[in-house]
């Protein structure tokens, strides 16, 4: 069974430790601009939303990639980038509906969550329970399916006018 990052948005306190540990793990530096996870924050409303790659089964970024550099790694249930093939066109950045793919301005490459090769540091450091890396239990699977279903359904909603 594969594990995945499950995010409980209500539990996020907006501390951004996940951003820090992510950039340290991957780049050896603290720089939220180079983190694979990001917190969208509305200060005046007290709203914080962690945004991270959802490792979609049928990922828009994978289908959008013109060099097949983005692909699914079924072993860890994630979407990865083959940097040998990536031409940095950033089509995946545009295609991701969650805004979860970042462009690293210093390394000049697209970055998105790689689950730290199986031990995501964000989940390890997040003690609030907002980010957890857990087995895809039935309950979660259901929730995911529902979300994916909504997305898919809305994508396949017939466009008006039904021309054909």
């Amino acid at each position: 069974m594969t594990k995945q990052l499950v995010i409980d948005y209500e539990k996020c306190t907006g501390c951004r430790l996940c951003e820090m540990v992510c950039s340290v793990k991957h780049e050896g530096v603290v720089n939220p601009a180079r983190s694979r996870i990001n917190i969208a924050k509305w200060e005046t409303k007290g709203l914080t939303v962690p945004v991270v790659c959802r490792q979609c089964e049928d990922a828009p970024c994978v289908s959008a990639c013109p060099t097949n550099a983005r692909m699914r790694d079924e072993e860890l249930g994630r979407v990865i980038v083959n940097y040998d093939r990536c031409i940095g066109c950033k089509t995946c950045v545009v295609a991701c509906p969650f805004g979860a793919i970042n462009w690293d301005p210093l390394a000049r490459k697209v970055i998105s969550c790689d689950l730290c090769d199986g031990e995501p540091q964000c989940a390890r450091f997040c003690e609030t329970g907002a980010i957890r890396f857990i087995e895809v239990s039935t309950a979660n699977k259901d929730r995911q399916r529902e979300a994916a279903g909504q997305l898919l359904e809305s994508m396949q909603k017939p466009v008006q006018p039904a021309a054909r």
Partner: peptide
């Protein structure tokens, strides 16, 4: 209250 908020990098919130 509805949940806690934290300062930068703090898990105590």
């Amino acid at each position: 209250t509805f949940g806690m908020a934290a300062c930068y990098g703090c898990q105590v919130h």
